[in-house]
Design a protein around this nucleic acid. Structure first.
Length: 416
RNA sequence: GCGUCGGUAGGUAAGUGGUUAAAACGGCCUGGCUGUAGACCAGGUGCCUUCGGGCUUCGGGGGUUCGAAUCCCUCCCGGCGCACCA
């Protein structure tokens, strides 16, 4: 079996670690690894995939995994740049979110199990005086103000509240608690979490004299835009199929730019390094064929949504973007289109402009007209040129028609 | 609380009484070229339209004026300084 340290390195999952060598953390005794997740939404998004993949590698190497839901710290917010006030999440919402997220984690982890904890269970019981005595004593302000997140705020004279400033104490306390209760001895996170994680490592060393570890991975950043990965103009790409249809999920990865595809294959799929190397060879030989993007879309969608949904997403993509015309495909695929693809119910005689709005392909009539004037609108294979065109019988085959706006946006029209 | 600076389109930000639906850049959208990629080039980017034009915008409300994003009053929000409280 390949050593875990090697797997993590070759896939680019290693940013910083607290021990002298990575091997000490990963290849020695079996560890209990903990990851904190913010419970502010009832679904994970693709930005959370890296942590899950990293943990899956740990699991496959026989380590244990604890997922901590930040029910307590979620109320505070960490000073990682978010300016808006965090709202207190009520217990019911947190429970609901936690449950939904746990199901998604299970899907990505495959058969392996993990422990779920919520830090509200212990943080909410803390007593201020005890906290200051038992936890606060072990942190020096001298060290805290040197942290990047804090320092940059101070340098810029941008206010940082005491609450935000204290965030790392809570996270450190979480680590100690998990170490005592569950034997957690590795905490992992994105590179932006390094200072918070290391605060816990140092705290435990000082208080208990125990050596525990920290490991972070580099955040995926879009090289051309510098933006965080996974955010689109229309919002995050969610793992929940209700929030982001598997078809759209699949499309997101199919559209990944060439420069990013190798990194994403390594970090977001379980394909072996050898497979990925072979794929990239093929990709650079025939970039136009998009071998790498296709493999990425298939692998990630399968990991998150399963084989069936991936096949469906692929078929729907074929019709919406491939050569296949609506008329050519089987009844099965048509049924699928109605279910999986973006669609809208329409009536004969409806103006094309209104249809585009109903189908979500334009946000206003004026915009819809603009698209038509640009020659961007294609109805059942025919470019629409007349702004006043209405839907006709001949546009439909078995009550279905395909409306496209530009090359990447399409919707299925269903005749009422 | 006092003083002061600021709040303009999704972002940064011009504009200090009419020619400003509002510069510029960036973002985004579309077309071209391609490979459902990137780069590049072109167009578009408040809403409605019978394509003549109409309507609604510059933190909120009220006022002055023929006319306001621009002037006045007031309220709300943010930065900074001072004071108060510790």
């Amino acid at each position: 079996m390949t050593k875990l340290s090697e797997i993590l390195r070759e896939r680019g999952y290693v940013h910083q670690h607290s021990s002298g060598t990575l091997e000490e953390i990963t290849d020695g005794p079996k560890r209990t690894v903990y990851l904190g997740i913010d419970p502010s939404a009832d679904s994970l998004h693709i930005g959370n995939l890296v942590p899950l993949l990293v943990l899956r590698h740990f699991l496959e190497n026989g380590h244990k995994v604890i997922i901590l839901t930040g029910g307590g710290t979620g109320m505070i917010g960490d000073p990682g740049g978010k300016s808006e006030e965090r709202n207190l999440l009520d217990e019911k919402t947190i429970k609901h979110n936690t449950k939904a997220v746990a199901a998604q984690i299970r899907q990505v982890f495959g058969s392996s199990d993990f422990t779920e904890v919520n830090n509200a269970d212990w943080l909410s019981k803390l007593n201020l005086l005890e906290f200051l005595r038992d936890v606060g004593k072990h942190f020096t302000v001298n060290a805290m103000i040197k942290k990047d997140i804090v320092k940059s705020r101070l340098d810029a004279e941008s206010p940082i509240s005491f609450t935000e400033f204290s965030y790392s104490l809570l996270q450190g306390y979480d680590y100690l608690h998990l170490n005592e209760e569950y034997g957690a001895d590795v905490q992992v996170g994105g590179s932006d979490q390094w200072s918070n994680i290391i605060a816990g490592v140092e705290y435990i060393r000082r208080k208990e004299g125990k050596e525990v570890y920290a490991l972070t991975w580099p955040l995926i950043v879009n090289k051309s835009t510098g933006k965080k990965f996974g955010k689109t103009e229309s919002g995050a790409i969610w793992l929940d199929p209700q929030k982001t249809a598997p078809f759209q999920f699949y499309q997101f990865f199919l559209n990944v730019e060439d420069d990013a595809v190798e990194e994403l294959l390594l970090k977001l799929t379980l394909l072996s390094k050898q497979e990925i190397d072979a794929l990239m060879g093929k990709q650079s030989a025939e970039p136009g064929k998009r071998h790498a993007q296709a493999a990425l879309a298939n692998a990630v969608t399968e990991l998150v949504h399963g084989k069936e949904a991936t096949k469906d997403a692929h078929n729907v993509s074929e019709v919406l973007f491939g050569r296949k015309e609506l008329a050519e495909v089987s009844a099965d695929v048509r049924r699928l289109l109605e279910k999986e693809a973006p669609s809208a119910g329409v009536k004969l005689g409806m103006p094309i402009v209104d249809v585009m709005i109903a189908a979500g392909l334009a946000s206003s009539k004026r915009e819809a007209r603009q698209f038509i004037e640009d020659g961007a609108v294609i109805l059942s294979g025919e470019t629409v040129t007349d702004v006043n065109r209405v839907l006709q019988e001949k546009d439909f085959k078995s009550k279905l028609a395909l409306l496209k706006r530009g090359k990447r946006n399409a919707s299925v029209l269903i005749l009422d």
